[in-house]
Nucleic acid binder design. Structure first.
Length: 489
RNA sequence: CGGGGCGUAGCGCAGCCCGGUUAGCGUACCUGGUUUGGGACCAGGUGGUCGCAGGUUCGAAUCCUGCCGCCCCGACCA
């Protein structure tokens, strides 16, 4: 059966769609722009959730849940934020259907059931949350308020791609309130750091930490911190943002507290989020022309055991033993005892699904006291003695995790270029793509103009960069550090 | 919103231009058998409102009109 994947070099975007479909991550749905996340794709999301949730809780955050709908009057309270999202909002205007007298068996919107005030389906929850925080916060003793929610949001996108951009998506959004500006900035940076650590240590996806330029900043934020990853096709992916919101929402929603000196002050705020988009990033960081490649720490199944040629008792006995040993080490294992498909089919199938380690057990192996271990990242196969197999796999999973990160890092390093002129920027973008480090005069107008000319935007102003005197590649005005330009998803 | 493409079995497609038996192929699925160390083979079988509505015709998947939906490229995208 031909489960062919389009080659990356042939058509990267088709390759991506093939992986998503053939690895069983998602399906199109009857709703334009909305996808069905299938069990295997959702399992990856659950792994991400579990880890992030742990990291949030370790830093003092708690989960809560706020409504899907936001009354229009609340939504528009913080003007910049409202403006930023206005063009992509879904709006609920009615609350009832009725039988259509002109079309038997069909329903119509009941014109008598018009809402007095329209409800916006949340594109993000600042408005409804800050309206609630007003009631929750009275004194400095109520601060800081550190809340996260796992939720779905809707942004009516013109053009969608599975995971990377869909009309509805799943994410977490943290919303915190603080007594001081410094503490709020600190909070945004703590989360920024958590996101970077999650991306690198769990997704094995190298990221550059930085700040957004004014143009790219979250609407309603004073400062946006971002982690930016580089995909295999040379395009950048914004993978997680953490915003310092100043007192913008506190003022819009009148959220004040009394200090210990009995003075009334507005609180300081942050918000931060990562979404199912990370799954898109995961795919485009590691996968190859044979299918998905998953880092062990996020693989729903880390090891699959395939009996060769079929699950006969003596083989299953060994399979069960290895399974028990691995489970005792906290490693997730699947024994494929299905008799319908042959081993070759299973090999291809599990490669498509990106399972990090495959164990093949055949009679010939058992006679020699070994099993065959294949790693997904390099496709290498080794014979490993039965006595040491579980220790071997435990270490192999760590090796794969590390190798994936190093491989992605090496690619990013190779795809990062210092550019010193507009001509060079365009040339690099059109040939190898990637991150282009260039001097910029710091103005929105210049960024806008460069975007017009090259379709590249400033992905971030890196946190860790060497200060270096230079001249803006467009205007020639002085600049103190290079920023990252790239074409982005 | 512009430009292009597509809608026929779960999936992928042919048939349409030039109307005519019972709508076909691959794959998947079911049954039986032979196989089995990298996507097995043979035989038999199940499965279809041909996107929807209307029109032309003795007769429409095929021609005409209208509608709906999806995909791709672009514009847009904290």
């Amino acid at each position: 059966m031909a489960k062919e994947i389009t080659l990356r070099e042939e058509n990267y975007s088709q390759w991506y769609l093939d992986i998503v479909k053939k690895a069983g991550l998602s399906d199109n749905s009857a709703v334009r722009g909305c996808m069905v996340i299938k069990p295997y794709g959702y399992a990856i999301w659950e792994k991400m959730q579990a880890q992030l949730d742990k990291m949030f809780k370790e830093t003092g955050h708690v989960n809560a849940y706020f409504p899907l709908f936001v009354p229009k009057s609340l939504f528009e309270a913080e003007e910049k934020n409202a403006e930023g999202f206005a063009k992509e909002c879904a709006i609920v205007t009615h609350y009832r259907l009725k039988n259509d007298p002109d079309n038997p068996g069909k329903l119509m919107v009941d014109p008598n059931a018009k809402l007095e005030e329209e409800l916006i389906v949340r594109p993000t929850s600042e408005a409804i949350i800050w309206n609630t925080y007003r009631d929750w916060i009275q004194s400095y003793r109520d601060l800081p308020l550190l809340i996260n929610q796992w939720a779905n949001v809707v942004r009516w996108e013109m053009r969608t791609r599975p995971f990377l951009r869909t009309a509805e998506f799943l994410w977490q959004e943290g919303h915190t309130a603080h007594a001081t500006k410094e503490e709020a900035i600190q909070e945004a940076k703590i989360i920024h750091e958590i996101y970077a650590r999650f991306a690198e240590d769990f997704m094995a996806m190298p990221v550059i930490k930085g700040s957004k330029s004014e143009n790219e900043r979250f609407a309603g934020a004073d400062d946006t911190f971002t982690i930016e990853a580089l995909m295999q096709d040379g395009k950048a992916l914004q993978a997680g943002t953490s915003h310092f919101l100043g007192q913008n929402f506190a003022k819009a929603f009148e959220v004040k507290y009394l200090t210990s000196e009995n003075k009334e002050e507005y609180v300081w705020a942050t918000s931060w989020g990562v979404s199912t988009r990370l799954i898109g990033g995961l795919i485009m960081t590691h996968s190859d022309d044979e299918g998905l490649v998953l880092p062990p720490k996020l693989a729903p199944i880390q090891v699959v055991i395939v009996p060769i040629p079929k699950p006969e008792p003596e083989i299953m006995l060994v399979a069960d033993r290895i399974n028990d040993e691995l489970k005792a080490k906290g490693i997730s294992v699947k024994i494929d005892s299905d008799e319908k498909n042959r081993p070759g089919f299973k090999f291809a199938e599990y490669e498509m699904k990106g399972i990090p380690v495959r164990v093949g057990i055949g009679k010939r192996d058992l006679e020699n006291g070994v099993v065959e271990i294949a790693r997904r990242d390099t496709k290498e196969k080794t014979q490993v003695s039965l006595d040491t197999v579980s220790q071997y796999i435990e270490k192999l999973l760590d090796d794969i995790q590390e190798n994936l990160f190093q491989r992605a890092l090496a690619y990013r390093t190779a795809a990062t270029t210092n550019v010193d002129s507009m001509e060079q920027l365009l040339e690099v973008l059109d040939t190898k793509g990637g991150f282009c480090l260039a001097h910029w005069d710091g103005t929105s107008e210049t960024e806008e103009k460069i975007k017009e000319l090259t379709k590249a935007t400033i992905r971030c102003i890196p946190d860790e960069s060497i200060l270096e005197e230079g001249k803006c590649i467009l205007t020639g005005k002085p600049s103190k550090q290079r920023v990252i330009f790239a074409r982005a998803y």
